[in-house]
């Protein structure tokens, strides 16, 4: 497991602690707590947070973290509409809420996702559309070859 040590070392105190409070917070968020915090964020937020610093990227790219994250977040359903030459994709949670609309993506943009077989009883089949399921956090890479081999529903 990667830790946030590199990051922590670079962090400075926000405010001088009260002299009396010897164990007062020194402005750092320990790695194990950061792990707990990041587990609570949805995938798109997490991906943006990879830009914060190297250690945050390491933490969110760690397979153990990815596994813990995917087990704490419900399945997302992606609906892929064909729109002209591009595609419109909406990431929808299991309640049908649109989590994130993404327009005209190319397959190589999907490489942060890995794909799962649609579960039995999935009702996301639409006319002239492609239905697939993905699971958060999809923080693992999917190659172009894998992406193009995904079987599409009629």
């Amino acid at each position: 497991m990667h830790t946030g040590d590199d990051c922590d070392k670079r962090r400075r105190k926000l405010h001088a602690p009260l002299a009396a409070a010897a164990a007062a917070n020194d402005g750092l968020l320990p790695a194990d707590i950061l792990h707990e915090v990041l587990l609570r964020l949805p995938t798109d937020e997490l991906c943006r947070l990879r830009l914060v610093c190297r250690s945050w990227r390491s933490l969110t790219s760690d397979p153990i973290f990815a596994k813990a994250h995917s087990s704490r977040h419900p399945l997302l359903v992606g609906i892929n509409f064909l729109v002209g030459h591009g595609r419109e994709v909406q990431f929808v949670d299991t309640s049908g809420n649109i989590v994130k609309p993404i327009l005209k993506l190319h397959w190589d943009r999907y490489k942060v996702f890995y794909w799962l077989e649609p579960p039995v009883g999935t009702k996301w089949l639409l006319y002239k559309s492609v239905v697939f399921l993905l699971r958060q956090p999809a923080l693992q890479s999917l190659t172009r070859e894998q992406a193009s081999s995904i079987s599409m529903a009629p």
Partner: peptide, 21 residues
């Protein structure tokens, strides 16, 4: 209170990688 320890090039690379987000 975190220091950005990426180079400009690295940031751009990650940004490309995560364009969807």
């Amino acid at each position: 209170n975190i220091k950005n320890d990426y180079t400009k090039e690295e940031l751009e690379e990650i940004r490309q990688e995560l364009a969807w987000a």
